[in-house]
Design a protein around this nucleic acid. Structure first.
Length: 465
RNA sequence: GUCCCCUUCGUCUAGAGGCCUAGGACGCUACCCUUUCACGGUGAAAACACGGGUUCGAAUCCCGUAGGGGACGCCA
């Protein structure tokens, strides 16, 4: 049997990073097994669903390069009639019933249960009652006539075999009084209709699973394989939220993380392959399995994400990296890049890519190649009278240098130091400060080569008085 | 409150009864390299939540305690 998995987000906001991890695991499993990865928009909560949120889901998945295999993507609202038909079917079979409780009546019931310290659950008061006794003016809901004795067991691929006594579960609502299906009904029906074989989702759905299995059993449908992933927590161990700064997938894109690095980091949260840390996606597809998913929640660690991102940037092809960083540079400069600037930056990629962690940092670190540097305080502090004297002397030499390449310039600096019988640190930091605007930069000779003679001399001359 | 799940260095994790003097990675830290900052290299510190069992032997199996998380909606 071929594997079919799905990712069913509800469009009520941004695409959460935890959801993205769930999407990734589903996608990897489909790839690994040669199966299908289906997307479905769960928009049955019409009050909270928005087109913007739908767009954010598509965008987020595209950015992460997780392609879904079904286009057009189904929206759950479209199959509402089908869901209602299933509820009716259960009603006819005597496996479901009308409940005429008003919301107020239910609230009163729960309040009483709370007061007594009982379990909070629907007590089945309409389960065996004659619908003829229905009060006027109340539109009923349809509830599942769930088994009251025995137990329901699931064999979760991550959490193991779990059993819950049916007495713990109540008769859940299948169809609301306005005729729309609840989440419990619609997931089960849609998963069945789409031929889903494996349900891989967040741990927060674990207890829902027992209810869903009861619906499946009532309909006589096969139970899919379940795998519940532990949640991703914030750095403080609490639920990951806006408080932690970056709950949305788009936040990571904007902060200059690479999609491949995100996939690698997210993969290593709750999943492992021995001691391997750097796992490119092509490799992950060959290794991924349900058996090595951990059972405990993981905290999000930005420092580790940074280090993985740095690794992928360092090993990225220069041209591809230039493409990736261009929007960030343009944003930093607040203007488009000229062809000449593009060339300069491309040439600078090998110099900068081992030293930064994100595309945002890369853009900031290379901006001085495209505009005159503004000297920061650390840079200014290096401009002592003595150092500036050397700068003036070197400026002269640079103007008349016969060859303008990295090795020659390097030689010139060394020769100058030897000639004057001084150390490189006595003048190099000042040169660097004037050219780059900061004391921290790659090899100066290489930078001057990229910058060109005119611009280099101009920057030195402007201050070397 | 009830039910369910979880618990190895600060963090992510390896670990399927003897290979564990508990390994790796990030972070932290010391040193080396060095024209600065990085990169890189070599080291250091750092964990089996606690208490009982089972066993010749337990991080690994069982029970309890504590802590954390999740679920208890006509939300998904």
């Amino acid at each position: 049997m071929s594997v079919v998995v799905r990712f069913p987000p509800s469009p009520t906001g941004y695409l959460h990073i935890g959801s993205a991890r769930t999407a990734l695991f589903n996608w990897l499993y489909a790839k690994r097994m040669g199966g299908k990865f289906l997307l479905r928009i769960e928009d049955t909560d019409q009050a909270r669903s928005t087109p913007e949120a739908v767009a954010a889901i598509f965008e987020g998945l595209k950015w992460l390069e997780l392609k879904w295999d079904n286009d057009p993507v189904p929206f759950q609202m479209q199959s509402q009639p089908r869901h209602a038909a299933v509820a009716d079917d259960l009603l006819r079979q005597g496996k479901a019933y009308y409940c005429y409780c008003s919301p107020e009546e239910l609230e009163a019931m729960r309040e009483e249960q709370r007061a007594r310290g009982d379990m909070i659950r629907y007590d089945g008061r309409w389960r065996d009652r004659d619908p003829k006794e229905a009060p006027a003016g109340i539109k009923p809901v349809i509830r599942l006539k769930a088994p009251q004795t025995g137990a329901t067991t699931i064999h979760d691929q991550v959490m193991g075999t779990i059993t819950v006594q049916n007495s713990q579960l109540d008769d859940m609502v299948l169809l609301r009084s306005d005729g729309t299906p609840t989440y419990m009904l619609s997931v089960v029906v849609d998963d069945y209709d789409m031929g889903i074989t494996h349900v891989i989702r967040g741990d927060d759905h674990l207890t829902n699973t027992f209810r869903q299995v009861q619906i499946l059993q009532a309909m006589g449908w096969p139970v899919p394989v379940y795998a519940h992933l532990p949640l991703i927590l914030g750095p403080d161990g609490q639920k990951l939220s806006k408080r932690h700064g970056a709950p949305a997938v788009s936040d990571y894109r904007d902060r200059g993380y690479l999609p491949e690095a995100m996939r690698n980091y997210l993969l290593r949260l709750c999943w492992s392959h021995g001691d391997d840390e750097i796992i490119p996606t092509t490799q992950a597809i060959q290794w991924f399995d349900l058996g090595h998913i951990g059972q405990s929640p993981a905290r999000f660690d930005f420092a580790k994400l940074d280090s993985i991102n740095a690794h992928y940037i360092k090993h990225m092809d220069d041209a591809a990296l230039m493409e990736a960083v261009r929007p960030f540079v343009q944003k930093h400069l607040a203007r488009p890049l000229s062809a000449a600037e593009n060339e300069k930056l491309l040439a600078a990629m090998p110099l900068f890519k081992p030293r930064i962690k994100t595309l945002v940092e890369l853009a900031a670190a290379t901006a001085f190649l495209c505009q005159p540097p503004v000297l920061d305080d650390d840079a200014k502090a290096l401009l002592t009278a003595e150092a500036l004297g050397h700068v003036a002397a070197l400026s002269e030499q640079l103007m008349t240098a016969l060859v303008w390449d990295s090795a020659s310039l390097e030689g010139m600096f060394k020769h100058y130091a030897a000639e004057k019988n001084i150390k490189m640190p006595q003048f190099m930091p000042a040169l660097r400060a004037l050219v780059c605007g900061t004391p921290h930069a790659p090899s100066l000779a290489a930078l001057l080569t990229i910058l060109g003679r005119d611009e280099s001399v101009k920057r030195l001359g402007a201050h070397a008085l």
